[in-house]
Write a protein that binds this DNA or RNA. Sequence first.
DNA 1: TGTACATCAGTGAACGCGCGTTCACTGATGTAC
DNA 2: TGTACATCAGTGAACGCGCGTTCACTGATGTAC
Lengths: 217, 217
Amino acid sequence: MSATVSDQKPGSATRPRNPRGEGSRLRAEILDAADTLLARSHNAERLSLRAVAKEAGIAPTSIYLHFPDVDHLKLAVAERGFVELDELREAASNQLSDPRQVALARSRAYAHFALAHPGRYRLMFGPELPPSLSFNAVGSRSRQSFETVVHTVEICRNAGITPCEASAFHLATQVWVAVHGLVTLRIDRPGFPWEPLDTMVDSMVGTLLGFDITVPQ
Amino acid sequence: MSATVSDQKPGSATRPRNPRGEGSRLRAEILDAADTLLARSHNAERLSLRAVAKEAGIAPTSIYLHFPDVDHLKLAVAERGFVELDELREAASNQLSDPRQVALARSRAYAHFALAHPGRYRLMFGPELPPSLSFNAVGSRSRQSFETVVHTVEICRNAGITPCEASAFHLATQVWVAVHGLVTLRIDRPGFPWEPLDTMVDSMVGTLLGFDITVPQ
DNA sequence: TGTACATCAGTGAACGCGCGTTCACTGATGTAC
DNA sequence: TGTACATCAGTGAACGCGCGTTCACTGATGTAC
């Protein structure tokens, strides 16, 4: 058990600098450290630049090599979260053909992501990012993410499943806000006597989209 | 326009002390100052003991005459919020007899309260209060507040309006989380192309409770 | 009627902490000549 | 082959700020004797 040069504890002061030309590796390390921090203390903790630097084992000033300020760091963390959320929803539904099953599976995947990563979820959909970063502008990651919900609902409509008088945008918005409310309250009020998560997601999404939740597999 | 002794600017250093025996007046002044602060900066601001003291025109230490720590101050602010929310819902529905109209009017009043007082709403339903204050325990103000939703749904069920296979608790929970998701996202993502608030509340609550939204007045 | 004392409604200074950001710097590695 | 210089990947000290909380205190008003 002899200590060697390659022994690198996280947060150790002997972190080796990246080789020339590979400075951008630190950017990923910073974002990883932020995710770690958010995962560790999911109790309403805020992300701070200094805490991220400490977790990454670097000086606070080194963050500025890759982000102009702390808000842009938060933005980058949120954007990585949207990528992961989209991947999880895709993975949960790409083997399914019934549009109803697709809608339910994607909604469940969304809810599971939120409850598995409450800190990241809050950064993505909560009040911590300043509105100046225009996170809900058309074309932004979060809007792209919402458009996949609209698309899923449109497939249901084209299959004649949902009530035809409501627009896909209208229904997608309802599904989004309902599942968002469900997961945020489950995170923030864990003492409430919640029914099982999947049961509630299926029930609410099924009702809002106008189909029964017990569809054949 | 001569200055007299009774000229009391808010935050002035010349705040007169309360008469003997009336020290508890300050408690209400502190809570008023907290509400003012929350109303002024509803952009994700946190309530701080020092900021409340400054707004009330007192020394930070004076808060401790009435609250053991900052969390109990926040708790008191939240509890006043629940009282006001209950009053607003009652006022919005006490002239109505149709159970469907009652359910919709109370839901709309809830949503209006949240959007009119986003800072207070976040304190009541968000992550800012430590779970140790057991805010969702049976019998707490927030649980009492939720029980009124269950009661409203029960009246609908007894009138044969809602689908009979779902329990009132089940449906009330769905209504609560749906409207909560709607108002928090409207607060935190004001750039999204939202449909009118009342339209969305009526549509979601009507769908979840199983009745059409265009009921006769 | 006078006075000592208790109570009440607060205040003021100080503590140690974490925060975002700035500025000047260090020291290794590549490249031009 | 040697050397001056530019670039790159970071660091360290310091700034002013707001935070929650502590401790000892002040000064007015009531009450007991």
